[in-house]
Design a protein around this nucleic acid. Sequence first.
DNA 1: AGCACGCCGACT
DNA 2: GTCGGCGTGCTC
Length: 828
Amino acid sequence: VPFPYADIAIPNVPKETLTYAIPEDLQEKTAPGMRVVVPLGRRFVTGYIVAVHDRIPDMAMRPIHELLDARPVFSPEMIRLCIWISRYYLCGLGEALKASLPQGVDVESERFVSLATDDKERLEAAIGRSRTRRQIIDALSTGEVMSEEMLRGVVGLKSVSVQLRDLMMEGVITIESVLERPAVKTKTVSVVRLLPPWNRAEKIAELMDIMERRAPKQVNILAVLWRMLQQNAPTTPMSELLRLANASNAQVRALEEKDIVEILQEEVTREVTLRYEELPREFTLTGEQRAVLDVLAPHLRDGGFAAFLLHGVTGSGKTQVYIEAIRATLEQGKTALMLVPEISLTPQLVHRFRAAFGKDVAVLHSRMSLGERYDAWRLTLDGRYRIIVGVRSAVFAPLARLGLIVVDEEHESGYKQSDLSPRYHARDAAVMRGAIENAAVLLGSATPSAESFWNAQAGKYRLLEMPNRIEGATLPTITAVDMLEARKQQRVRGSLSEELLAALRERVARKEGSIILQNRRGYAPHLECDECGYVEQCANCSISMTYHKDRDALACHYCGATRRLAAICPQCGGIKLELIGAGTQRIEEDLREALPEARIIRMDLDTTRRKGAHDLILTAFGEGEADILLGTQMVAKGLDFDRVTLVGVVSAEQSLLLPDFRAGERTFQILTQVSGRAGRGASHGEVILQTPSPQHPIMRKVYDHDYRAFIDEELASRQRLFYPPFSRLLLIEFSGAHEGLAAAAAGEFHRHLKRAGSFFILHPPVPAILKKINNRYRYHILIRVDKSQDPDGSRMAATLREARERYLLQKAARSVRVEVDVDPQNLL
DNA sequence: AGCACGCCGACT
DNA sequence: GTCGGCGTGCTC
């Protein structure tokens, strides 16, 4: 039944949907889930059809300009998921839907300007005395059509819209809205094929005979095409043809002219290749793995929503459980989605999936180009893949008949999008998607988040446990080195204790692998004046700058600004500037000095920027080309090398010092995860944690591998303090170029919230701990909502809406940006 | 977000 | 006067 109206969600429009008329000739073809181009104000934008209907709206409507899809790109389930995201995370529906598409597929209009007259007098009259108008007319007088953006550049102003409008009113220029085609397209290559009847042996032989003398190159071309055809290749890529026939494009064109061959455009897929290879391992499932799979089996067989939390110690074989569970899902004719925190950190996992499932798997990660992502998305939509392995945004992968979603390392904060809207948590969105699509959801971790563990205890998830390592491997022995004591006794070299160095020396001699974690890149995180204590800070951010020895410069790890190393203190003129603390570069130096015989590879953001660098480093280490793998947290996760028998942590207490209620949890997680890299093979592993506080309660639970003791205490303390999972956090951020305005805006908003009700605890506005980032001053209001009084978040949403309206009426400077982060992972 | 409109200080 | 920066409001 054709419907005349469509409710359309549009990014950057604050209303959930706007209603447009569907032109009669499009009504048959239009369906929810398709993308359209619609007029919005004076431009054209991409929108997403959420519903079609025949309820006459009370507003005048404009018609849909163009239908972009022949088939829906959002399933009804995907639309439901995005509606949930927009309501729970307080963002526009248009933004949520846009986040579910690969980047670069949207169409936007651009305004193009040209002269409407060359009558000099009329032009002069229109210019009058305006410098800007003269610049615009001058730029256009070559007869060129220029975009508004180009004109802005020529004039050097932020906006020329007022001038363009006036010039248009006077009739001397014309403005045209032109739709810009999407940034990504299907990649095509030219291919050539023999047209009938020349694809028959006797015909082609005859033809080649005739042409032999006058056009030998063309005969070469025909010979190649004929050979390819006999090898069952109906078409030959142009580039290959030219190479094999040693011919030129013109010669192929000549054959095309004579209707002997045809040149076509054929779609190709940009395939991602990985260098690191892993052979399929022989394995038999352990009893624990089998038990877990037995629990999952009926759910995977019968379908329906169910959520599971798999708590398996490091090395207990969670990946194999995922693979078997996915296999069972595929056997039911369904598809599976596997989320991982950061693909480049877990190439090993990707290879195991490729080995197990081959071409049924597509991988989606942040280092892929727009085109690669687009291809993967389009082919997923076409049903080419049955398994998607991907990072956060892969939770939106358009798989049909979804049977299982796995979230590996579910505790990782990388699953939370924190920088831009929608600020969704992919783990929670995965659970919601499972509920909407009637799929099973399996969350896995050696150190489940407090939220998930509580959900398991509360019965929302079913808890599955694998407390032992596979194949008789044992958990490593963890010991601490008291660094205060070691320093006192001068048993340190740089940042490394004699104990750790001795253990490393042993491993080097035995050709075993060691992993060293120092979760800080660069050489030294502070440059401090010995005289007055001044610390060099970034000009744009309130953070100390890190010294990078390779570049011999200070760098801000927030905004990327760099600066030369100052020779004298800008505060007191002192000349004794000291490098304080140690990053991976300095540890590398310490290691090389103390262990000249050791081969060391450093893996941090700085050494892995290049595409494929991860793979190369890990391959080299895995094959024994290095003794020590030194790095930031990227060495802590997911690596599975039998030859590693020692793990050292340079400063184990580091993450404990952060002013965040999750500091303890994060510390336990990273220390447990990195420890888990040791002793995965036949040899027992050893872990050495350097810390000034070896008796800290968190540390003690790390030594004992006692997640339960840790989480019980953590949950008790969260309950006492009414922090998640016992409350829902909202962080409202006010940011602006002027500190006073940001502070005032936060104060204003706070006043409106204060009267709003008693189902939440409102914290007073405070300057953010990182008070300034990128020259924007930041103020925070933290809210702790009583979940029992607002289970789905709708009360808080309404409260914020109201407060926002009143706040806007007060016309407190709106140069201040207000952003809400629901379930924030980072309170800095 | 982008675009239009209206207010107001600065310049001539 | 005229220009142009900046705040405010709206987009089916």
